[in-house]
Each structure stands twice: as C-alpha cells, then as structure tokens.
Design a protein around this nucleic acid. Sequence first.
RNA 1: GGCGGCGUAGCUCAGCGGUAGAGCAGGGGAAUCAUAAUCCCUUGGUCGGCGGUUCAAAUCCGUCCGCCGCUACCA
Length: 512
Amino acid sequence: MTKRFYITTPIYYVNGAPHIGHAYTSIAADVLARFKRMDGYDVFFLTGTDEHGQKVEAAARAAGLDTQAYTDTISQDFRDMTDAMGVSYDDWIRTTEQRHKDSCAALWKKIEAAGDIYLGHYEGWYSVRDEAFYDEGELVTLPDGSKIAEKSKAPVEWVKEPSYFFRLSAWQDRLLEFYEQHPDFIAPTSRRNEILSFVKGGLNDLSVSRTTFNWGIPVPDAPGHVMYVWLDALTNYITAAGFPDTTAPRWDFWPADVHFVGKDIIRFHAVYWPAFLMAAGIAPPTRISSHGWWVVDGEKMSKSLGNVVEPRVLAKTFGLDQIRYFLLREKPFGADGSLNHQAIISRMNVELANDLGNLAQRSLSLIAKNLDGKLPARGDATPEDSALLDAANALPDIVRLHMDRQTFHEALEEIWKVIRSANGYIDRQAPWALRKTDPERMAVVLRVLVDTIRVVATLLQPFMPASIGRMMDQLGVAPDARSLADLAVPLADGLALPAPQGVFPRYVEPVA
RNA sequence: GGCGGCGUAGCUCAGCGGUAGAGCAGGGGAAUCAUAAUCCCUUGGUCGGCGGUUCAAAUCCGUCCGCCGCUACCA
C-alpha cells in the first residue's frame, strides 16, 4: 500500500492582499510536499481561502461589491500569488463552496449529537477585526472611553446575544492526555509548552455561533445563527478530504500529517480543532507545525508602516527559487527572522552562485572540455574520494529527518556542508592539473564530483524546483529518475552531458 | 503576578561539566578549472553581572540586570 501524506496550509483570510507571510507558509508546506512525493509518498497538499465573517462582509461593503463577488476577486488574487510561488497544491478550497457548507453542517450535527453543543447567551467584549472574544483584563481603555484589545489594538464592542456554545471546558483532561500521548503534536517545543500551560490553566466553553451578521455558514436548524468563523475555517481540512463522505477516496488521507500554521493561530489548531474533532468522533491531526514572523528591515511588517512585502515583487527582483531558498534558509522555521535586500543578496551570491552554482559549473566544464562531455566511469576510490562520497550518501537520511521536523534551515546547512567539502575536494585534487599528469585520475575525480552534486541537487529539488531541474538536466539525470530512490542507480558511464550553463547567476545591484 | 525562553567573536547563531566553535564580515597567502568564483591560514570573545557547587562551569544552582513569548489578575 502506498504511503499517504496530507499537508495543509491555513486557508488565507480574504480581508486583505497576500503578503510575504502567506507566501512563506505556503512555500514551506510546498517544500515538504515535494520532498514527500520525491520520497515515495502519495501526497495530498491542500490550501485555499477563508471567506466568511463580519470582517469580510464589511470589507466588501466598503469596496462597494457584492460579498461573493468580493471574495471571488480576493481569493483569485491569493491563488495567483500561490501559483506564482510555484506551490504545488492538489486542491484549492474556498469556504464559500457548497462542499464545505455541507461538511460544516455535518460536523456541527455530530458534535451536537454528542452533547457538546448547547444554546446559551453570549455576553462580553468582541473584536470584529480579530474575530475573537476578550476578557476585561485583555483590554485597554482609550482616553475617549472606547476599549481596544491590548495585544492586537483592535477595537472591541460589548455584545449580548444568544449563542451556541461548544463545551470546551469538558475537554481539558482529554486534551492533556492527547498531548501527553502525542509529544510531537505541536512544534516547536516552546509552543507546545505554551499550549500545555494554557490548557492546564483551565478552559472556558467557546461561543460557536453568532446572530449579528449573515455572512457565514448557517447553523443547522437554528435560523439566525451562523457558525463562528474558526469552526467554519478549521473544518476545511476535513472538507477537502471528502467529509462527511467517509467513503470518499481522499478520506484515506485523514488525519492530516502536518497542518502548517503561523504562530498567531496555534491555539485554534492545537486546542479547539482537536477538541472539535474528538467530540465528533473524528481523529485529530498528527502535527501542528508553527512558524515565526518575518521582520522587514528591522520593523514588524504592517500596512500602516507601508513596509508590506509583496512576494511576487520579490520573486521578480531576485528570482523565485532564490526567494524560496532564502525564506527557508535564513532563519529557523519556528523563530522570527529578518528579511532585507542585503541578506537576500548575500545568500544568493555566496551560497547559490559561489558555493553551489560555481561548483557545478567548474566540475561540468572540465568534463565538457577534457572528456568530450562524456560522463566518466567510477574508479577506485581514494580515502578523499570516499570521505566526500560517504558524506553525500549520508545526506538523504539526515535531510529526511530534518524535513519530518520541519527544521528546514538545518537540512540546508547539512547539504551545504557537503557542498563546501566538494569545493575543498576539487581544489585539493586539482583535476585541471591532473589533466596533464594523470588523465585517468582526473576522470575519476570528476565522476566523484558529479555523483556528489547529483545527491545534493536531488535533495534541493523541493526547495528550488526550476533551477535545480536545470542542474539535473546538465548532470544527465533523466526527468523521470530524480527521486530519492533513484539515487541508488548510478548514472550510466559515457553518458553524454549537455554543455554546462550557469544555473545561479550572481546578483548585481542595478545601477541607479 | 505566574509559567517559560533568551543574553557566547563586528553580525547571525551552535555548543550546554573536562584546554572557547561555525557561517558571514575583516586581514594575509595559494591557485587560476570555474559565475573575479574557489582553497588554505588568520585577527577577534574575561561565553550579560555577582555569588555558590565541583578537581574542573557558557555548560549545574542561587540572585540581579536586560530582552522576548504565553498566561492571569487587579482595577
């Protein structure tokens, strides 16, 4: 039976334009999806847009558009951005689709039938902008008497309305037991500890319906109530797997293997979501992997500061693969990090152009010029040959381990250690000198280099699919033989290699 | 207020009980196959402060200072 792997991004909220943060999550998920496919898994990779809620309704009205027409436009913009980032999703879900409405209604009924939903009254402070309820203590009173949420600075209003509640308080012990039994459920560990301490501190029942607006999914048999946007949004992950049709082919993918999320929405995914699912008798996801923010030129990215980074512009300036590489290389996945032109150029020139691109170019040029472009055969390995080849051959297992933990920057660092070793190797072996003194040895050295670069390139495909695809072409690796398993089969001796061309050009600052 | 994390070379960080490390940046040299790329060597730190444990502490404990995260409460 084929190994299945289900990866999701959050569905992006359509109340604004896509920015680098959205692209980051999607690219990270894409890298894992591509890696898993390359490692023999049948992958289902889901992304899409979250389109309900009061904020969206208001934004549409402000834009003078019909709400559905408004969400159509924004959703398409997100989809264009996602495509432009080379994200290889298998399904694009929208919460306004009928399949999702059916799924939400079915999930609601299951939870209700289990006795975990009851009708009550909600009374308290609510922020439309955050789609969240706040306690008094989380608020700050402004000089004009109005109140805002201390953390998000979003205005709140006093709301009193009938509301359905999810009996979250009853799930505390079962959640803690679940976390205990699944130590890898939340990544990184620091976030796991925060969630643990939050749940240990006690849980309040959660208001899961609203009556003050209509742009949402109707609560079954409860006119006037629409579902709380987070219940609606989270459900997308099972909708796309076919829920409520548990005989759907895709249902075999559930539970999801990794939900990628930003650090701002961990609680929804790590507390509410498993509770909803367990209440409905559905298995919770396997892992919630959360990441940090990009800080731009030292400032938090925000619309008011005007420093919002458009991923399509970045890709156009530096190249898509260069940006994908930078985003996963520059900082640990779970941590915050800084994005600026100098840092991008440095990674691009030092690591991609100088270390990797130049290594491939100098190695392949020697084959083109001295061996008539024919791949030399392997020869007896010297200790130096073996040291390099052993390091390269150990990489797939090391990288797989890091991918499973989403420690992307460490995976890349391990790959770069081998690339740096290869540059040292070529210098010490000096095949350009061997050409005259010992042509046979020169051929063996060049073969060691090609074999090493092949392993490195294979592992880098998920990160930089287009560029590395070109490198694979130059290495003579057939398009249908580029998986991890294919590494076991040596390239054919005497294989004709195409003329090498630079894959990673240096970035030169345009003259102003 | 509680819980937790962090503070190590100019920068980003690893090390987490046994003579201070990596990458980048800086300096010197080699080589010239290659995208003026590469390789080798090298400058640089009293590992936030102060106490303690230990034969031995970035590494363990206490305390203080400074940042950050989660959370709570007062009003």
